[in-house]
């Protein structure tokens, strides 16, 4: 992973927007409950890849966008995203040294934390949802991470080459 090279904010926003579109495309309910968290993965990727330019605050704002499109109480997903980002900041130095496949194992707990914060807030708010569905995206996201991170890395590399 090439870490810290200067990626323009525009590029990061564009990838986040694309991931958000993938999160929103209507699919049958069965697929929807197992849909990988593209958006969360993208935020976490930039946290790891751009330690100087994409931090907790950016992750929080990115999470707020989810609250807007989902119509959940403002800052619910914001908080979950920031907590996951904090986890990512803690593990990213190990992550840098690992091949993509092995990163999956480190990443799964971070994704689990993200879902858990949402689960917990829903519980406090008295929303009872089938908890079983909650954990499916963790599995599918972790499995998809190598491919998704590879794609984002390619995009980042093109951007670096272009800016030189």
């Amino acid at each position: 992973m090439i870490v810290g090279a200067r990626i323009s904010a525009l590029m990061m926003i564009a990838t986040l927007a694309a991931a958000l579109v993938l999160t929103l495309i209507p699919v049958p309910p069965v697929v929807a409950s197992a849909r990988p968290a593209f958006y969360t993965m993208t935020v976490l990727f930039w946290i790891a890849n751009q330690p100087y330019r994409f931090g907790l605050l950016a992750a929080w704002v990115a999470g707020l966008m989810i609250d807007i499109v989902y119509g959940t109480p403002l800052a619910e997903h914001g908080l979950a995203m920031a907590v996951a980002a904090y986890g990512m900041i803690k593990i990213r130095e190990w992550l840098w040294g690992l091949p993509l496949i092995q990163q999956t194992i480190l990443l799964a707990p971070v994704l689990l934390v993200y879902e858990f914060v949402l689960f917990w807030i829903d519980g406090v708010a008295g929303l009872n949802v089938d908890p079983w569905y909650r954990w499916l995206p963790v599995v599918s996201s972790a499995l998809l991470w190598p491919a998704w991170a590879y794609l984002l890395e390619r995009i980042a590399r093109v951007e670096i080459r272009r800016s030189r």
């Binding site: 090439i2 931090g55 907790l56 907590v83």
Partner: peptide, 28 residues
């Protein structure tokens, strides 16, 4: 390879992440 980008530190880098997450949690 780590390239430091000295002239463009984000705000959150200057605040320790631990403190940042506590502040964000309270605001959220």
């Amino acid at each position: 390879k780590i390239e430091d980008d000295n002239n463009n530190h984000a705000l959150t880098r200057r605040i320790a992440p631990g403190l940042g997450i506590v502040m964000i949690a309270i605001i959220s």
